[in-house]
Write a protein that binds this DNA or RNA. Structure first.
Length: 621
DNA sequence: GAAAGAGAGA
């Protein structure tokens, strides 16, 4: 290697007669494990280079330092170390680039780009190995401008004929969101292999062109190419996002009929696809049949089950995961906490919190937000606020969870204070935040503030109110007894009111005993969803509330005639970490007799003590 | 030397 290294010696007092052959010198250098130590031994390095000690030792050292993330404060030091390497040849440059990029961290990738710029200035001629490396640095940094510059050099220097260079260019444009360029580079490549196709399809899929991506896959098959495991993972996961079961099964068959290796990637992707398509049982079969599983397999299963609202199954899967000694990671915990929130499983949630503390997992980001949400939904608002307060960085999710939690706990004013605080520190609310805010107004009877905030949604925050926000407003008016205003509001809505909107109005009619209006609303509701039990029940209850028993009975009979059954109400309760599910009239529990006796007592107690602001009885459907 | 899987709030 015809390279020479000189290091700045201006500020250092170097002894010129240093003994470079001293084995302790090279030993010391070998044992330096950080840039800090190297720096401490700078004089040592200089001693070596000044007497022409084999420079390979120093290169090796730099390489070993650069293949792990460089601490940001030592960035300029390492950079200066590089810029002092003179007469660098292309092979050395390539290996330095390779080790910088292998750490996959932004600082190192940036250093690689800086090196590239400096090498270009020095007039170093790049080879076919350098371009993929430089493009990889651009990919890691999403650096489109530099990438375009490299692209023009590629064309000028004739490397546009090289398969590897072109595949890296396709990837660059893909990660930078330039689908048009992805296609252009692919089409203009003189040679294409499976990697080109996979990168092309990935480029489409990553930018939301899922269907187009899958179509390209079939185009490739027709071209006579045979897909490999990596390609199949890309296509199966886009199929999962499309929630297209038929297509997913077709791809599953392709994997089987072409005898592709059923590896952990393929297994995870298939499982994810079946879960997203609602085929829980097939997903579980895939999971059971997987020859090897990793933590992502478990995460896919747990969060997939939670997304299908199979929360109990998700917690069971988590138990099994622990029985098998698989260590959960942050993503696992988010899925578990999400399931706890929906089940009201406070004890399991608390266990997860302890696990987080014991394993020194940072309560931040997804984990922190999931924890706040779990406590809020499980009724432990104090704990939710405590976790929220301990979080160093809060985002719209953290605030939304707290606002929604406080709103549903009837703490309207505090919820709104959190909302205003959030705006003050510059966090933009989203649609869900406004669901919380409007719910707070509705529960707190804050009619004027509710109207103002509803108007602010578009006026200030440029958020278009969705059907659920209109629902909140109808609820706000209905709860306040302003039934006519609620009907008027619904009539003026710019979007077609759905069943839940009319349902709110109907519930208000029932409380206010507005039979005629209720009949009118019921008609609307039956037109929207004729098989729904709720409409009939509410109408029947409205008649009952004004003692029109005969009419109430008529509605019930109409339900029977149309074979509409009331879906039994269902509640969940957690005791000692075990979640039990109760349906109305359910006698499956071994102590159901005792339970019903207690419910009776509680009901009597609550009717005796609770008063309702509008003087009506509680709504029992 | 290039291409792969999982994450929350009503």
């Amino acid at each position: 290697m015809a390279c020479h290294i000189t290091l700045s010696v201006t500020s250092l007092n170097v002894s010129s007669n240093a003994n470079s052959q001293d084995p302790s010198v090279s030993h010391k250098l070998q044992t330096c494990n950080s840039t800090k130590e190297i720096k401490k031994n700078q004089s040592l390095i200089i001693k070596i280079s000044s007497v022409q000690h084999p420079r390979q030792l120093l290169y090796t050292k730099i390489i070993s330092l650069c293949s792990s993330p460089i601490p940001s404060k030592e960035f300029s030091y390492v950079h200066s170390l590089f810029s002092q390497i003179q007469d660098i040849d292309i092979n050395l440059f390539n290996s330095l680039m390779r080790c910088l990029l292998s750490s996959k961290c932004k600082e190192n990738a940036l250093l690689a780009l800086l090196m590239h710029v400096e090498m270009m200035c020095k007039g170093l001629v790049l080879d076919k190995y350098t371009y993929p490396l430089v493009l990889n640095a651009c990919v890691q940094l999403r650096e489109l401008r530099h990438g375009r510059l490299v692209h023009s050099h590629v064309i000028k220097t004739g490397f546009a004929l090289d398969l590897y260079v072109m595949n890296n260019l396709i990837r660059l444009y893909g990660v930078c969101g330039c689908v048009g360029s992805v296609r252009k580079v692919f089409d203009r490549s003189p040679e294409r292999d499976l990697v080109s196709w996979t990168t092309l399809i990935q480029g489409y899929v990553d930018n939301g062109y899922l269907k187009e991506g899958v179509e390209l896959f079939f185009e490739m098959i027709e071209d006579g190419l045979r897909a490999d495991e990596r390609m199949m993972v890309v296509v199966i996961s886009s199929c999962a996002k499309l929630e297209d079961l038929r297509l997913g099964q077709k791809l599953h068959k392709y994997v089987q009929s072409h005898k592709l290796n059923f590896d952990v990637f393929i297994g995870n992707a298939l499982m994810d696809m079946y879960l997203k398509c609602g085929e829980t049982d097939i997903a579980l079969n895939v999971f059971r049949e997987m020859p090897t599983r990793n933590v992502i397999s478990w995460n896919t299963l747990i969060s997939g089950l939670a997304q299908r609202r199979e929360f109990k199954q998700a917690l069971n899967a988590f138990n099994e995961m622990q029985d098998q000694g698989v260590k959960p990671d942050k993503n696992t915990l988010v899925g578990v906490l999400n399931s706890c929130s929906n089940l009201g499983a406070l004890e399991v949630g608390k266990w997860v919190h302890t696990y987080i503390d014991r394993n020194q997992i940072q309560v931040a980001g997804y984990v922190g937000n999931a924890l706040v949400d779990m406590y809020a939904k499980c009724g432990s608002m104090d704990d939710a606020l405590r976790v929220f307060g301990s979080m160093n960085s809060k985002d719209v999710y953290s605030y939304t969870s707290v606002i929604v939690g406080l709103a549903t706990h009837g703490k309207a004013r505090i919820a709104l204070n959190f909302f205003y605080k959030m705006l003050e520190i510059g966090i933009q609310p989203n649609g869900v935040t406004f669901v919380g805010v409007l719910t707070a107004c509705s529960h707190g009877g804050l009619i004027e503030e509710g109207h103002k905030l509803f108007a602010d949604m578009w006026r200030v925050h440029k958020l278009k109110p969705q059907i659920e926000h209109y629902g909140c407003m109808v609820d706000l008016l209905s709860r306040a007894g302003l039934t006519d205003e609620a009907v008027e509001f619904v009539k003026n809505m710019p979007i077609e009111p759905d069943a839940s909107i009319w349902g709110s109005v109907l519930a208000a009619c029932r409380i206010q005993g507005r039979v005629e209006l209720a009949e009118h609303v019921t008609e609307k509701l039956v037109n929207i969803e004729s098989e729904k039990d709720g409409t009939y029940i509410l109408m029947s209850n409205t008649y009952a509330s004004v003692s029109k028993w005969r009419d109430a009975l008529k509605v019930r009979r109409a339900m029977k005639r149309q074979k509409i059954k009331k879906v039994p109400g269902c509640s969940l309760i957690e005791l000692d970490g075990v979640v039990s599910e109760f349906k109305k009239g359910d006698k499956a529990h071994p102590r159901s007799k005792d339970i019903y006796a207690m419910v009776e007592q509680l009901t009597l107690h609550s009717i005796g003590t609770e008063t309702f602001s509008n003087g009506s009885e509680p709504l029992i459907v």
